[in-house]
Nucleic acid binder design. Sequence first.
DNA 1: TTGTAGGCGTTATCAG
DNA 2: CTGATAACGCCTACAA
Lengths: 384, 384
Amino acid sequence: MVCPHQVEWGGLVEGDSALGSRSAAEASTIRPTLKDVAREANVSQKTASRVLNEERYVRPEVRDRVKEAILRLGYRSNDVARTLKLGTTRTIGLVIADISNPFYASCAQGVARVARRRGYTVVLSASDEGLQEEREYVELLVRQRIAGLLLVPAAGDHGYLSSERSRGLPIVALDRPLVGVDSDCVIVENEAGMRAMTAHLVAHGCRRIAILCGSPDIYTYGTRLQGYRRALETAGIDERIRIINPTVEGATAATLELMSEPDPPDSICCVSNRVTVGVLAALVRLGVSVPDDLAVIGFDDFELSDVVRPRVTMVRQPAIELGMRAATLLIDRVEGLESGPPRTVTLPVKLMIRDSCGTHESGTQEAQCELGGQDGHDVPDGQG
Amino acid sequence: MVCPHQVEWGGLVEGDSALGSRSAAEASTIRPTLKDVAREANVSQKTASRVLNEERYVRPEVRDRVKEAILRLGYRSNDVARTLKLGTTRTIGLVIADISNPFYASCAQGVARVARRRGYTVVLSASDEGLQEEREYVELLVRQRIAGLLLVPAAGDHGYLSSERSRGLPIVALDRPLVGVDSDCVIVENEAGMRAMTAHLVAHGCRRIAILCGSPDIYTYGTRLQGYRRALETAGIDERIRIINPTVEGATAATLELMSEPDPPDSICCVSNRVTVGVLAALVRLGVSVPDDLAVIGFDDFELSDVVRPRVTMVRQPAIELGMRAATLLIDRVEGLESGPPRTVTLPVKLMIRDSCGTHESGTQEAQCELGGQDGHDVPDGQG
DNA sequence: TTGTAGGCGTTATCAG
DNA sequence: CTGATAACGCCTACAA
């Protein structure tokens, strides 16, 4: 089916836009330009441009003529050209670890929401926690002249970003701070959250408390581990640290192993929703009864945490808000609405007390963690 | 901290790149151009360009000089300019309904994986099932001159896309075909899947089989509903159709209502993972025992479907592969590797038999649905 | 092997 | 109010 525009369009093929026939692969190039619109409307290019950008000083009559031409030709302005001229994109680059982790998906959702609201476009990339991949993506994004960069940094040194930063690229770290550059960052109360979790286990009589933790080189795991240690230290209890691959499969394997050892734990702290899910899967397979045989507590919510029996006690992070705050901060930087030194925004987490740590619990209770403030607190960093 | 490049850079401020001081908001513009590199290396711009693109015919000595200049200046080529000149991006636009639905997240993951492998960048947008929002996003993407468009169409007519298509923009529909334009599309066996689900319930003695379904205007729901109806027709059983808002909350509310009515169903078919999760939440709350009091079966897997007790019988769709196939097809079109008429790729689904439909089940069994082939089948459409 | 001139589609400048 | 003309940063032709 040939749309009517096609017909109109046919008459312009002679134009100097070099609109001859091309191979299918190149066909996407056959689009009318502002010059075509101008010719069609019998005005200069600049006038057409004026209409397009809704500038003043265009006679209504002329304006209508141009608008008509735009419609007739199915003209779409070329942001590539405009960007080149203006020197600034309305695109933000988002580099996360893994889209299939609901936590990051929620962060991305928050980012997307704010971006849309403020007229920005989001380029998404997944680094899979690899610094090398992250660098490649950032390189690509910089080439594309993104207005700002939002990233969940992989483990390792991010000094490579300092040249970008010094060239004025706004960067906001999400979920974890950057190592080796300073930048804004939006994180949650990792240590306090885990401390609260561990203390909760202690309060329920647990003494052989294991933690299944990803590499402490990754900030979130490192700080959460720290919280665990401090809580145990306070309680005078020995640590049982297991560094694992923090995936569902990794956690399942580790749990299977852990529970088959002599002197197994009486409780497990999970450092992420992936780990919690993996632990639960293993326990179900083993027929271990929670919380009777073993208590389980997790950092970060997961879908069904409230539906699974027993309902899992865990610390909830505001994932969507994390994304929204990060995006807001970034765009504020981009637009110059925010111009102070790098700042760290720390959002509060909540301990949701349910049934997986002992029968004393009843109903879902919420407990703000020690550091928690209603809206998080905002700390300007020391110095650059 | 001032990085060493800054110093080098300082010497160039006089250049005709107009690198004077600017406001913080515009600072991202102060980047060296190829011209700066050329001057720094004492060669022509073209020579610098040659080195950048690794063309032949550059004396090694000169090449090194240029590379050094690039490094010293921290030069990053400007893809915006390059794109304008070349007339073609390496960006694909992805419009999905909702990132927080793990199904779409997985699709996006598949897309991202292929895109990365083939050197493309992905711009992500979420339409929230709104046709209007979808249009706005597409408009934006077209302006950005994406090389191709990948979308999960919202309900409604997509005739608005035909002008883009006729201008040569490759479009691949994901999860649902487009209405009103023809295009490639990658979907799963919706009807067969739901027919198998329903038949499975019938085989387990269910007779009051309800379906919780989203608006049939959305292709996936429409076809799944069709599968349900056909299976019941075959079995000579009455329909119990409930059109709901297919979210977790919507399904929970509907289930609560459904179960409190006189003559409640003996089984529920869920049209999506969102619905299944919502149903389970409601049943847990009501204390309804599955499968004893009620059988439950779902379309589309969800995390923990295999961990929750009883384990939920459901039809699994290959979400990641869906995304990968769609992206592959799209990029093949973009690059002209694929040039025939629009084609529809249908991927098979699998019925995973577990415990939520009756005690006859034991262990997880897999059953390929009727139409299933190993790799899906590929049907060139009728005609344009 | 290297350099010069011109244009991709916009917008900005500055006259008419 | 409107229109030539010159960039934006890169690449393709076409010389040298």
